[in-house]
């Protein structure tokens, strides 16, 4: 059972979210049409772990890029233009590009892992939250808790509350 409460105003939405959070009912998701730092604070989200993926990707990319260039040169010993087989300056350029390529790709993977997307399944959702409404979703609440959540949210100024199935 999930409770879905729609708010018109941002401050009501934040207050409602805060109160449900303090009451400790179920799992809370806060849906908004624009990113809200305040909403992230309510949930206690700190620095996103995505940055670890970015760092790892960049480092792996730099090493892999340089290693790929060196390994290719060592496997095929084909001297060109009087340059060394392992000539560092051009390989640094390759390493630079690979740093960025793998940095970006790892960040993308990190985004998917951290956000849990893609999630092509039915989850509690109110389409108006992508237009101009703010929505608090309380998932996994038992009947009494759901009632309590509804009361709290309505008191906070929710326009409407409704119940939907939990997401899988």
């Amino acid at each position: 059972m999930a409770v879905l409460a729609t708010f018109r105003y941002e401050e009501d939405f934040l207050a409602g979210a805060e109160r449900v959070k303090t009451a400790g009912i179920g799992r809370i998701s806060l849906m908004s049409p624009v990113p809200l730092e305040a909403a992230q604070e309510v949930l206690g989200l700190e620095k996103s772990p995505v940055r670890r993926f970015s760092l790892a990707g960049a480092i792996i990319g730099a090493v892999a890029g340089f290693a790929m260039a060196v390994a290719t040169a060592l496997v095929f010993i084909l001297p060109t233009g009087g340059r060394a087989i392992i000539s560092v300056p051009p390989y640094l350029v390759i390493a630079y590009e690979m740093t960025i390529l793998l940095g970006v790709l790892f960040t993308l993977v990190g985004f998917h892992i951290v956000s849990g997307l893609p999630a092509w399944r039915d989850r509690p959702y109110a389409p108006e939250s992508n237009i101009d409404r703010f929505v608090v979703v309380v998932e996994g609440a038992a009947e009494t808790d759901a009632l309590r959540a509804e009361t709290i949210l309505r008191e906070a100024g929710a326009e409407e509350t409704r119940r939907v199935e939990d997401g899988q």
């Binding site: 040169a73 001297p79 340059r83 060394a84 087989i85 392992i86």
Partner: peptide, 11 residues
Amino acid sequence: KLREYSKPGYY
């Protein structure tokens, strides 16, 4: 080997 391969001109 690495020293050899890092030498300009190689030959």
